[in-house]
Amino acid sequence: MQLTIKTFGITSEIMSGKNVTMELAGTTVADLRKALSAKYPSLDKLNSLFIAVNRAYAEDATTLKETDEIALIPPVSGG
């Protein structure tokens, strides 16, 4: 399936865009992590990387749909 991924902070720089489309062979957040890692190895160097689905932190087992709002959450630093 084809996913559009919102990026923030340093992930926008690593992936060269704010909304990045990606073809995913698998169906879960864990599959997406593997695909991202393969395509953008610099993501592995971050302190942490969470994936949000529909504006909430998602577990690796979460199943994705093309219509989901998917976002990458690199280490947050508000305050």
Binding site: F8, G9, I10, K45, L46, N47, A52, A71, I73, P74, P75, V76, S77, G78, G79
Partner: peptide
């Protein structure tokens, strides 16, 4: 609230130095 905000809320801070810039806490 401030401790949790700094840990969980998706807000990012970029520090601009005299000789460059960096997203805070992104890398070890």
């Amino acid at each position: 609230i401030i401790d949790q905000l700094k840990e969980k809320v998706p807000i990012w801070k970029k520090e601009i130095f005299e000789d460059g810039e960096e997203w805070v806490s992104a890398h070890p």
